[in-house]
């Protein structure tokens, strides 16, 4: 079942079309990537799901029902441009933002203690935000996003500003939130993180959805019959006009070949085995990065 259904949403700003008939279907308990180049309309779509702005037309359903104001208590939003009150103490800030989401004070305080401990921020609880390092501020912001245990989490570039160690911790936390039942909408340019944690994606470009589906399926659709072939010895593989061509690559551990249209893989393997001592052959699926660039540039 889908947790979010965005149906043909249109949003126009002052003569500029920000979203043109956009659909988005995020299954329950999924980590869903919302991708697109800058200015494609991702933030606008996120703001519509957040009820910060209203669509000109189209509907947003959450859990099968039209989105209402009360639903925002069930959403946690980490905006790309992070922001906290600089002069307020960490603990006061977290509790204030949690209570804005409708959390009772006692619960907010006890949850906050847990999270502060988890992120090793307990000793900073009475410091002002401006005294914290950037990484710690990011952690505080993350806590304010998840403290009320929302069913839907929206992260806009969550890894920006984190060092690798903290990014790894953040990734673990996100996966755990997913395991606890949260649905996660994840907007990013960072394709490596998409490959790592997203199960499905939607790619938006120029206000339209241009690509959509499971990460594995998309890779399959975009595969180009490329294989990495490894043979014993230092023999160079030569192209076989009837079967494949050699693709120049930087790879030193093997040779990249591209099968001709209609040639079966098993025949190629047989031919390679006859002519060389084949030690390995792996299919080369395109990276999300390549797919992203290709899709965006083609449109």
């Amino acid at each position: 079942m889908n947790f979010i259904d965005v149906n043909s949403v249109v949003k126009q700003y002052d003569g500029h079309l920000a979203l043109d008939n956009v659909d988005l279907h995020v299954p329950q308990g999924c980590i869903y990537g919302l991708l697109g180049p800058n200015g494609a309309g991702k933030t606008t779509l996120i703001r519509i799901i957040n009820r910060i702005t209203r669509p000109d037309s189209g509907t947003v359903m959450i859990n099968g029902k039209p989105l209402e104001d009360k639903d925002i208590a069930n959403i946690g939003y980490l905006p790309e441009e992070r922001g906290l009150y600089k002069k307020i103490k960490v603990a006061d800030q977290i509790v204030y933002l949690a209570r804005l989401k409708g959390m009772p004070k006692n619960l907010a305080v006890s949850e906050m203690e847990k999270w502060l401990e988890r992120f090793e921020l307990t000793e900073w609880r009475n410091r002002k935000v401006e005294e914290l390092s950037k990484g710690m501020q990011q952690k505080v912001q993350f806590i304010t996003t998840v403290i009320h245990r929302p069913q839907l989490l929206i992260f806009d570039e969550p890894f920006s500003g984190f060092d690798p160690v903290n990014a790894e911790q953040l990734k673990r936390e996100i996966l755990q939130l997913r395991d606890e039942g949260a649905t996660i909408l994840f907007s990013t340019h960072n394709m490596a993180s998409v490959e790592e944690i997203c199960e499905q994606i939607t790619l938006i470009n120029h206000a339209r959805v241009v690509l959509e589906g499971k990460v594995g399926d998309i890779k399959q659709q975009h595969k180009k019959n490329l294989f990495m072939v490894d043979v014993a010895g230092c023999e160079a593989i030569e192209a076989n006009e009837n079967m494949f061509e050699i693709v120049p690559s930087d790879e030193i551990r093997g040779t990249l070949i591209k099968l001709n249209e209609g040639v079966a893989l098993r025949d190629t393997i047989a031919w390679l085995n006859d002519n060389y001592t084949l030690t390995g052959i792996t299919e080369q699926l395109p990276s999300m990065n390549e797919i992203f660039i290709e899709t965006v540039q083609n449109k």
Binding site: N50, R51, I52, D69, I72, A73, I75, Y77, P79, E81, R82, G83, L84, Y85, K86, L97, L100, K101, Q141, T144
Partner: peptide
Amino acid sequence: TNRIVEVIVSSCRP
């Protein structure tokens, strides 16, 4: 300028 307003308006109406 703090950019916190985006967080706040995702919790209550402007």
